[in-house]
Design a protein around this nucleic acid. Structure first.
Lengths: 187, 187
DNA sequence: TATTGTATACTCAAATTTGACTATAAGGTC
DNA sequence: GACCTTATAGTCAAATTTGAGTATACAATA
């Protein structure tokens, strides 16, 4: 998704890698997109080589330089392609870390598992609050379009679904602890 | 998650990379884990270097060799650490491809978007059916523990949540198409 | 004015993932 | 028994991601 994101932002106006990071933060997109700075700079350089983006200018502030990239026509074409693909793809995402862990629950004492899940619940709750605050913040800077509003609502529902799963898992573990087969290291 | 998955499977018994792939398929885990063969072989070699697994034997069938790995005590320790981390982590996963695409919906004519989303709905429906069939298949080979059953239910709810979002997006787009600003390539 | 902290703007090695490719064995069919 | 397909068991280069590190500018505080 890095390319789609970067190209998409560059359709609005030419930007530097750093500015792209800023925009992702402002719009809360960094919360769900998980695109780190390194990936942005890499994508810019790579796409420059492919002619999807070109170095428009280098602004100097004292001794520090800032590279500004502009999307090309080939870049716009690629952007459209990626956008259409992203819409067609089944993008359902599962909480794989949790699913994987659940596959091996018999390896840990039930109380430990329950406590660890409690910790996850705390973290989710914190993220949830941060996100709500972020949305409020964002609303100050102009009206949010209805389709974006739907995405925000979906995020909250994802949080709730995860919390539900965590609660159910804790309940099942408390009532019906899985076979405590191999808890030592006796191999 | 690759390490957690591989180490976890090796706690049951020594296996080859190929056998690990097989198990992931049998258990439907490949559907949500997204671990490709290359990653498994890489993880095995890497973890061998770190002393978390060791090459137990090489079975020969005619002229073809199969490398069997066994988890070590250090590996079991690492496994526990990864397992606990995975349980504590907030593992909520968002459909990032769709979210990213939605950020740029004004770049495409609404009908095109709606059609593309229709395609995604078809694919999700197909995955959903495949998954249900897979679960039935799995039930034949012994009873599914209750916590694993919860995970399956969560998967279905994830599918449903995604379908709901897609339907809502289509509805909003049909009623209230976003600003069709820059549909040509006039830059 | 010296220093401490924070924002700006990246770089780069190492780790990991991707996906195309290789090569042998086993099983069926004409 | 020659041929074709599928299953077994990987390899490997290229792409991408990660995350720690670098270096300058600006602002505030002591």
């Amino acid at each position: 998704m890095t390319r789609l994101m970067v190209l998409g932002l560059l359709t609005h106006k030419p930007m530097s890698g750093y500015e792209i990071q800023q925009v992702l933060q402002m719009t809360q997109s960094d919360k769900w997109a998980g695109i780190l700075p390194g990936s942005i700079y890499h994508a810019l350089k790579k796409m420059e080589g492919e002619g999807l983006v070109r170095l428009e200018s280098v602004e100097h502030t004292g001794n520090r330089a800032k590279a500004i990239y502009r999307i090309t026509d080939r870049g716009r074409e690629e952007f459209r392609k990626l956008l259409t693909e992203a819409l067609k793809q089944s993008s359902v995402a599962f909480p794989t870390a949790l699913y994987t862990a659940v596959s091996f629950l018999e390896a840990l004492p039930a109380e430990e598992t329950i406590a660890a899940l409690e910790e996850q619940k705390r973290r989710i709750e914190a993220d949830y609050e941060a996100m709500k605050a972020g949305e409020k913040e964002k609303e100050k800077y102009g009206p949010v379009p209805p389709h974006v509003r739907l995405v925000f609502r979906n995020m909250y529902e994802q949080f709730e679904l995860q919390m539900k799963l965590l609660n159910e898992l804790q309940a099942v573990l408390a009532e019906n602890p899985p076979n405590p087969q191999t808890w030592g290291f006796e191999s």
